Computed example of a mutant assay.
Amino acid sequence: MTKSIFVTQPVLPHLADFIPYLEQIWDNKILTNCGPLHQQLEHELCEYLGVKYISLFNNGTIALITALQALGLEKGEVITTPYTFIATAHSIIWNNLTPVFVDIDILTSNIDPKKVEQAITDKTVAILPVHCYGLPCDVELLKDLADKHNIKLIYDAAHAFGVKHNRKSLLNYGDLSVISFHATKVFNTFEGGAIVSHSLEMKTKVDQLRNFGIVDEVTVSDVSLNGKLSEIHSALGLLQLKDIEQTLNARKVIDELYRELLRDVDGITCIKRTASDIDNYAYFPIVVEDSFPLSRDELFEKFKEHNIYARKYFYPIMTDFDIYKKYADHTPNAKWLSEHVLCLPMYPTLELEICQNITKIIKGL
């Protein structure tokens, strides 16, 4: 291939359609501090996602940090997965809590509830699972564990925009759910994120924490961060939301084509996406088995020879980073998957012919 094909490409509306939103911002001269477009986007996202309350943030990492703070967790341990992006673990440390990494179910790539239960102690204050690749965790079993031990349950739902489980939004599970609107995500606002909560009281608290802990002009209740989303980012979100169904449908077509073309390739396994009622096809991860002629890393390099840039996502696992090695535990499934997984290019405008060429490279080995 002559042009470079990356693992993802941001979805962008037509620039001409964005101009009227910019003109509105220029006219009202409100750029941030929860202006009218920010409020409108919160309202429209609640309706589209089927959630009661949503609080927009400038990125998903600040939203994760704030979610843990909003639950008022005292010093203690938070059980999470080592098979995730670094922001998940960072949010725990930023709150002066201790991460406890437990293994995953290798078939789903999500945290294993059995391992979670084994790790719960009197120091445990919360569970922070990740809906990896937008695939739902075992939300029912994790809820039972949280209720049984009276601990909080916060979902890193960065990948899970628009996913439905048991006929309702996956974001309605847990005490709080955190979404990312980063440029690489299914729905983006350039940079951005959100916390989904289930009561007006919690939303009010989250909104205050998002704004330095300010309650009113003379009251500051908490030491917290500035996590507000600007009007320009909000405007982009409103425009993106108009075409989200076309985006999801295009992703579905690509997902189905990849699966058909790779169905009978020995040594290549496509991670199944059958756990949700409505999927968002956020990523297309394959597992390069030991029986395949090339290792995962060799296939990764082979793709680059053809100007195809796949992604080892997630690699390495959290506890292989020097800063998290002291928290390492026995997580063989996470370790194995991180060394065998490869995410193929997946974005709505990806040409089907390119998908076919990508699979021909795999089959030609």
Rank of each mutant, 00 (worst) to 15 (best):
P10S: 10
H14A: 14
D27T: 14
L31G: 08
E42H: 08
L45M: 15
L45W: 03
C46Q: 10
Y48G: 02
Y48M: 05
I54M: 03
S55V: 10
S55I: 09
G60Q: 01
G60W: 02
I62C: 08
L64D: 02
I65L: 10
A70P: 12
L73P: 08
E74A: 15
K75M: 13
T81S: 12
T81Y: 00
T84R: 04
I93L: 15
N96C: 11
F101M: 05
I104P: 00
L107M: 09
N110R: 01
V130E: 01
C132I: 00
A146K: 03
K164N: 15
R167G: 07
R167D: 14
K168P: 01
L170H: 01
L171Q: 03
Y173I: 04
G174E: 01
D175Q: 10
I179A: 04
H182L: 06
K185T: 08
V186L: 04
I195L: 12
L200Q: 13
L200P: 06
M202K: 10
T204S: 14
D207K: 08
Q208L: 11
D216Q: 05
E217S: 13
L229C: 09
L236N: 07
D243Q: 11
I244K: 04
T247I: 15
A250C: 12
Y258N: 07
D266F: 08
K272Y: 01
D277Y: 13
I278N: 07
I286T: 03
V287H: 04
V287S: 05
F292R: 00
F300H: 14
E301P: 00
K304Y: 00
H306A: 13
Y309S: 08
N333W: 02
A334H: 05
W336Q: 10
V341H: 04
C343K: 02
P345D: 02
Y347A: 06
L352V: 10
L352T: 08
C355W: 00
T359N: 09
I361S: 11
I362T: 03
K363L: 11
K363Q: 15
